[in-house]
Simulated scan of single mutants.
Amino acid sequence: MRKTRAVLVSAAVVLGATLTIGATPAHAETLAGVFREHSECERVGTRGTDQGWWDDYSCEWEGRYRYYFLYA
Rank of each mutant, 00 (worst) to 15 (best):
Y67M: 10
C41A: 07
M1I: 14
A12R: 02
A17Q: 06
T24Y: 09
Y57Q: 02
T18W: 05
C59E: 04
W61A: 11
C41V: 08
V13E: 01
V13K: 03
F35A: 06
T46H: 08
V9H: 04
V34I: 15
A11K: 04
G45Y: 10
E29L: 09
D56V: 07
V44D: 05
V14M: 14
G16A: 13
A12C: 02
A6C: 11
E42Q: 14
R36V: 06
H38V: 02
I21H: 09
Y68T: 03
S39Q: 15
T24G: 03
L8T: 11
V9Q: 06
V44E: 05
A12S: 05
T30V: 14
C41Q: 02
I21G: 00
G63W: 10
T18L: 05
R47H: 08
T46C: 00
A12L: 06
D56G: 01
K3V: 02
C41L: 08
W53E: 15
R2S: 12
V9M: 06
E42I: 15
V14S: 15
R47S: 14
D56A: 10
G48A: 03
Y68V: 08
T20P: 03
E37A: 12
M1Q: 13
A12F: 03
Q51S: 14
E37G: 00
A6H: 12
A17R: 04
D55P: 00
E40V: 10
F69G: 04
M1T: 13
P25E: 03
Y57S: 01
R66I: 01
R5P: 00
D56M: 01
A72C: 14
G45W: 11
K3R: 01
G22K: 12
L19T: 11
Y67G: 05
Y65D: 14
E42A: 15
T30Y: 09
E29S: 10
T24H: 09
R66Y: 09
T24M: 08
L31C: 02
G22F: 09
T24L: 09
L70N: 04
A6T: 10
I21D: 05
E37C: 00
L8R: 15
G48M: 03
A28V: 07
A11V: 10
G63V: 05
F69Q: 04
A32D: 04
G48Y: 05
A23G: 06
V9P: 04
R64L: 12
R43D: 14
E60I: 15
A26K: 11
C41M: 08
T46A: 11
W53P: 00
G52V: 05
M1A: 15
E29M: 07
V9K: 05
L15D: 04
Y71K: 10
L70E: 02
R36N: 12
A17N: 11
W53N: 14
C41P: 02
L31I: 07
Y71V: 04
G22W: 09
D56R: 12
R2P: 01
M1K: 11
V44N: 04
R5G: 00
T49C: 12
W54D: 05
G33W: 01
T30E: 13
M1W: 10
T46L: 12
R66H: 09
G63I: 01
